[in-house]
Design a protein around this nucleic acid. Structure first.
Lengths: 207, 207
DNA sequence: TCGTGTGAACTCTTTCACAGCG
DNA sequence: CGCTGTGAAAGAGTTCACACGA
């Protein structure tokens, strides 16, 4: 069975929302409510779920805990994944301590920067290293995800390093697209482009 | 004519890449090269451009400067837009000084936080205020874009404040979806969900 | 009766093929 | 001749309608 990226993304959001509901102690949730929370329609939610083999009938909606557990297993979202951050400028250091990661099964286990001065100045509980040790540390600590927070000009170079180091996924915060082999899943998160999109979108909306 | 969000997003990326090429002094670029740089196919690039009314024939590709100027005008991407950041934790303060914004026509003209202590401690060239003054300052400085960098629990509240203050667009970095009226363009950038997506994607890829 | 599961209809997007300009 | 512009074909993704289980 082949799931589209859109479906996977929505399922991830559903999972996130189920986690929230579980914490609140809610027992059941309808496709309609999930749809509202993740910004889509109830039809799409039900269709997505049916593609995975829906969890079973009730007349109250989906059972929060068991459904969450099922999704977690299917996508291995419960397993804690190790990640590293490359580039310890303002954004990189902010991400080092981004508390939401830990809560949701992602653990930042190393930070890298090419400036040794910067490495010495940083105050954090997470170990920081020079970029020259990226491959060594990544392998030693079985890091699966690399987060790129370096300036545009060195982003591709770091992507190559991470590729060589054998990470399985890359989240790229630099404003350039990085090229990596297809086997490595990667996502570009370009803030400037996001603002540009918002601006362009409302220009188009008003004409 | 109605452009899809996908098309708008791609056009924004094209614009960004044209700006880069212009800086490098490149004069012409083909649909194929643009496609590679923004991660799509040459067909899609040409189709997108044709939806805007393509810029005219050459046998060398598109003329970088004039094409960029044309896109800039059509989407008003050259006009500088004022933005504010709400929530001055680590992420918020990192964004305050994110140098790529200024380069690309976005200007952060204010920061807000509910903690007065934090406001006094922050060292930055940008003016910071208590959240209670959000509406006043937003209107006084004609801020069009609001960036939400507060924790999940207050994100919706801030989105409501920004809506009342009359911003046209919202970029939301908190891990919850915010609800705003349809006239306000908004985009959710949830880091945790991005990592989850990457993880889920490579689990699916390998089975 | 309520809310899901799902084939079928529909709509939107991407790909293709090829004419046409410089 | 190379590379664009674009209508038409193919392909995806979304919406719908309705059967069905609790």
């Amino acid at each position: 069975m082949e799931l589209s990226d859109n479906t996977i993304e929505r399922i991830c959001k559903v999972f996130g929302h189920l986690a929230l509901l579980e914490k609140k102690g809610v027992e059941f949730v309808s496709s309609k409510e999930l749809a509202e929370q993740i910004g889509t329609t109830e039809y799409t939610v039900r269709k997505d779920i049916s593609l995975l083999g829906g969890p079973g009938y009730t007349r109250k909606g989906y059972e929060v805990s068991s459904f969450k557990r099922e999704l977690g297993q299917k996508f291995q979202l419960t397993k804690s994944r190790k990640a590293c951050i490359v580039g310890l400028g303002r954004l990189g250091t902010a991400l080092l301590d981004y508390e939401n990661f830990q809560e949701d099964g992602f653990e930042i286990v190393a930070g890298f920067d090419c400036s040794v001065n910067k490495i010495e100045r940083i105050r954090t509980n997470i170990d920081v290293f020079p970029v020259s040790r990226l491959q060594e540390i990544t392998q030693a600590r079985s890091i699966e995800l690399g987060i790129i927070a370096v300036p545009a000009e060195s982003a591709q170079e770091i992507a190559d390093e991470l590729t060589k180091a054998g990470v399985k996924g890359i989240l790229n915060f630099s404003p350039v697209k990085v090229n990596v082999p297809a086997r490595i899943v990667h996502l570009d998160m370009d803030f400037t482009n996001a603002l540009r999109f918002i601006a362009a979108r409302f220009v188009m909306q008003n004409k």
